[in-house]
């Protein structure tokens, strides 16, 4: 019982740490100067409608590259830990209707995923969300049919090529423009068009492919062959 008491005390202590944040919290009236700079820069310098996208891809681009690397390492870790797949995969009972509907739906889900990551600089969404939608399309295939075989070589090829292209665009930024991952390696274009914002849609599409293939790989490994 003394252990339970220690847990309660430590949890309450943790709560007390957060107390100053709650009591000292007052809602800001204006954006912080840094955030205001990001909003103005996104509109005036980068021609990007979605400010969150320009923060992720450009202003904090190196950070995002690091996050994608962590995701890659996690995928490798899952693959390493669960090398030997289970024999019978988790699938729904076979039914003609389920299989036909899912094969139609998968194509639509893939198109939605591609739409989300190519329009990341215009509307809410982007590479991470689009990649997850693509991975859930593959998940539907895995769950509805036990015959589905996902080609690991293709997954690895898509994953590593998009990762290499991401870093390649970053290095092109050093050579051609002001610095690593600068979107100005491609023409910035007109505000609000699909082909605008320089390299931002290209980079975000590459992130989408990379995240999609990595998460599909995690799902295939965990779900079993």
């Amino acid at each position: 019982m003394i252990k339970y008491l220690a847990v309660i005390v430590s949890v309450v202590g943790l709560g007390m740490i957060f107390l100053p944040i709650v009591t000292g919290f007052h809602e800001a009236e204006q954006l912080s100067p840094l955030a205001a700079q990001y909003v103005e820069g996104s509109i005036n310098d980068l021609e990007t409608q979605n400010v969150v996208t320009s923060v992720i891809v450009t202003y904090r681009g190196l950070d995002t590259l690091g996050e994608v690397t962590v995701l890659f390492l996690a995928t490798v870790g899952v693959g390493l830990l669960l090398k030997d797949g289970v024999k019978n995969r988790l699938t729904m009972p076979f039914s003609e209707m389920l299989e036909t509907t899912s094969s139609v739906l998968v194509a639509m889900i893939m198109v939605l995923g591609i739409y989300i990551f190519t329009h990341g600089h215009l509307t809410p969404g982007g590479g991470f969300q689009g990649g997850v939608v693509i991975a859930s399309g593959f998940l539907l295939l895995l769950l509805t049919s036990s015959e589905t075989k996902i080609n690991h070589l293709t997954l690895h090829l898509v994953e590593s090529l998009s990762g290499a292209a991401y870093v390649g665009i970053g290095v092109a930024g050093i050579v051609l423009t002001i610095g690593f991952l600068s979107p100005e390696v491609l023409p910035l274009g007109e505000f609000g068009r699909l082909l605008s914002a320089g390299a931002i849609p290209v980079i975000y599409s590459l992130i989408g492919l990379k995240v999609g293939s990595e998460l599909t790989s995690i799902l295939v490994t965990m779900g079993g062959e």
């Binding site: 954006l31 912080s32 840094l34 955030a35 990001y38 909003v39 996104s42 400010v51 969150v52 923060v55 992720i56 904090r60 950070d63 995002t64 996050e67 991470f128």
Partner: peptide, 10 residues
Amino acid sequence: DPIPSALVLT
């Protein structure tokens, strides 16, 4: 503020 959104997203 767009910065917390960007951080939480990743």
